[in-house]
């Protein structure tokens, strides 16, 4: 009975996210529909003959009504048939497959570094709130979230690669490196990406905790003689799981913005750079596919956060 309630809630969340994804796909599709001119002309270049344009248009279903093209495109997305790049005719799926693992590796490493660091910062700041430590953390994190990633990246390159020659300025990763080589390659990109995310996440974690620390049951715990660390960890933390999970998800979605910049600066062969390049060349099928991938990733994160919030709430778990 009780688990049914939770399952229903989670099911509803999943359903809502699927609907949301559909809505987004419509937006992405419409976005590319705004493109002026005939795609076939763009693909074939200026010198193309009328017949060639007509032939390609038919092949790309460009003569069909938009609604039908949307359905065809959506069907392709689901079945993994993402079409072909307008620029070089390569299969979009293959292009993405060659880049996706690199981006996942970068994002995964960043999450691995930043989540524990941020939680530690946020929780300690909440425990020692009002102290000098807390104020320093607060100012530093404010500063870090307001700094553009490319400033962090350029400064990092300037200091560690150009001046100190400790680390390479570019992040080429061919998979055969040793562990130390791996660390050298990823140190700068991961540090840059983590910089803003850690700050963001730490601030939100602290805010969520401080919020619960203001409740009566925390005052009650203090009046029972509970030591401060136990007050935060045993009393406040379980009630802040929902907001903290949410903070983590939101911050990790910041990764999406950061990764675009970082892959460009460090010339990292990831999905984000593929997309930036596609935007410069207006390679629409590729842009669409990348956009859908990023959105899916984002929605998954938010979904996990929602589920964590549901599972951590005894009011929902047990009626």
């Amino acid at each position: 009975m009780r688990n049914k309630v939770v399952m229903r809630l989670i099911g509803a969340r999943i359903g809502a996210n699927v609907l949301l994804l559909l809505a987004i796909s419509l937006l992405v599709f419409l976005g590319t529909e705004l493109l002026p001119g005939n795609v076939a002309e763009i693909v074939l270049g200026q010198g193309a003959t009328l017949e060639a344009v007509a032939g390609l248009s038919a092949a790309m279903h460009l003569n069909q009504p938009a609604a039908l093209r949307y359905l065809i495109w959506l069907g392709g997305l689901v079945s993994g048939n993402l079409g072909q790049s307008l620029v070089n005719g390569d299969s979009v799926a293959a292009l993405i497959a060659s880049r996706l693992p690199n981006s996942l590796l970068l994002a995964g490493l960043t999450a691995l570094v930043s989540v524990p660091a941020a939680l530690a910062l946020g929780i300690t700041a909440a425990i020692w709130r009002g102290t000098l430590y807390d104020r320093v953390v607060s100012v530093v994190t404010i500063a870090s979230v307001s700094v553009p990633e490319f400033l962090v990246a350029t400064l990092a390159v300037l200091i560690f690669a150009v001046r100190l020659h400790w680390l390479p300025a570019l992040a080429y990763f061919d998979g055969t490196d040793s562990l130390s080589g791996l660390i050298r390659v990823f140190a700068l990109p991961v540090a840059t990406l983590s910089f803003a995310i850690v700050a963001q996440m730490a601030r939100m974690t602290r805010a969520a905790l401080v919020n619960t620390l203001e409740s009566s049951y925390v005052e009650m715990a203090v009046l029972k003689g509970t030591p401060p660390a136990r007050v935060v960890l045993w009393h406040a933390l379980p009630n802040a799981v929902g907001p903290i999970a949410n903070a983590i998800a939101l911050s990790l979605s910041f990764l999406l913005g950061g990764i675009i910049i970082v892959e460009t600066i460090f010339d990292y062969p990831g999905l984000a750079r593929l997309m930036v390049d596609a935007v410069s060349t207006r390679d629409m099928p590729l842009i669409q596919a990348c956009a859908m991938l990023f959105c899916t990733f984002y929605l998954l994160l938010v979904l996990f956060a929602d589920i964590a919030a549901i599972l951590s709430n005894p009011r929902l778990r047990l009626r």
Partner: peptide
Amino acid sequence: DTLISLPGLMFALVMVAAL
């Protein structure tokens, strides 16, 4: 809610590509 779940920079890229 739909709009807010579009990652910002990415949405901007799509718009710039299109327009």
